[in-house]
């Protein structure tokens, strides 16, 4: 594995970690005209925890992230970070949306450098860090390609790099690996895990892939179809990196799948 410039993604400093910047969502509600997407939702994610969110398509996961980020206004509820109530996580979290949202006139590298160009206090030597992340994510040699010249999977990876170059303690990922083939996906899963372990970031990741959730997450949250509720929260203690062939993973997979199935039959 290539050496990685760690200074770029500042590890959460130990003092902060002791305080424990817990993300706490209390009684959060959101509805669109006539459609209640979620009501009185509660979620707590401790510092440094990798939390995967799984739920049926259209249940409101992306909307949940949008509300957390302040992209959409909440109807009611409270979001707090490190014990302090905040309006949204705009200045706390890096957010990778479901769409890649790469600027078509910039190369992949320039796209990944966008946060460095805009954010004040962002480290100046962003280019090297981006190159390193590109190497880790299998994008070396494609730095100067335009988004429309590469595959959807590559665009998604470039968008992931862009998100990771945000200097933030909390990372929200909306199906970050959905457009990837199985092999690239498993490589990227490993890289995501390494990054999270190295820098101790708190990660919330939406995924449709049960195995992915079980391999990466400390906590797997199963969500119901709309209105979205927390059905189950599974804490997985087995050490990382995990393998799909681990018997424990297999066991959890059974549980999660049967839970999801039950939810679907109840919904129908």
């Amino acid at each position: 594995m290539r050496p990685f410039d760690k200074s770029f993604l500042t590890p959460t400093c130990p003092a902060q970690r002791e305080v424990g910047n817990i993300l706490k969502v209390t009684q959060l509600s959101k509805s669109f005209t006539g459609l209640s997407v979620f009501k009185n939702l509660n979620l707590e994610v401790p510092n440094g925890v990798f939390c995967a969110l799984i739920g049926p398509s259209g249940c409101g996961k992306s909307t949940f992230f949008d509300v957390l980020m302040g992209v959409l206004p909440m109807d009611s509820g409270e979001i707090s970070w490190g014990g302090r109530s905040v309006n949204d996580l705009k200045h706390i979290a890096a957010y990778m949306q479901q769409k890649d949202l790469l600027l078509p006139w910039f190369s992949l590298e320039e796209n990944a450098l966008l946060p460095a160009k805009i954010l004040k206090g962002q480290k100046k030597d962003g280019r090297k860090a981006v190159r390193d992340l590109f190497a880790r994510f299998g994008l070396s040699g494609f730095e100067n390609y335009l988004p429309h010249q590469v595959s959807g999977g590559m665009r998604q990876r470039a968008a992931l790099v862009r998100t990771l170059t945000f200097d933030r303690e909390l990372v929200l990922l909306d199906e970050p690996l959905s457009a990837l083939d199985a092999l690239t996906r498993s490589i990227l899963q490993e890289e995501l895990l390494n990054l999270q372990l190295e820098f101790g970031k708190t990660v919330l990741m939406i995924t449709h892939d049960v195995e992915e959730a079980l391999l990466l997450a400390d906590d797997v949250v199963i969500l119901s179809s709309s209105p979205m509720r927390l059905l189950e929260r599974i804490h997985i203690t087995s050490a990382k990196p995990r393998r799909p062939s681990d018997p424990e993973i297999g066991r959890y997979k059974e549980i999660v799948l049967s839970e999801l199935k039950r939810e679907l039959t109840v919904a129908q």
Binding site: V71, K90, Y95, L101, L103, L114, P115, K117, I118
Partner: peptide, 18 residues
């Protein structure tokens, strides 16, 4: 795309240019 820039607190001129 505007949201993406707003999340980064981009100024009017940054958004205009980029």
């Amino acid at each position: 795309y505007e949201l993406l820039f707003n999340l980064m607190d981009a100024t009017f001129w940054q958004k205009l240019r980029l």
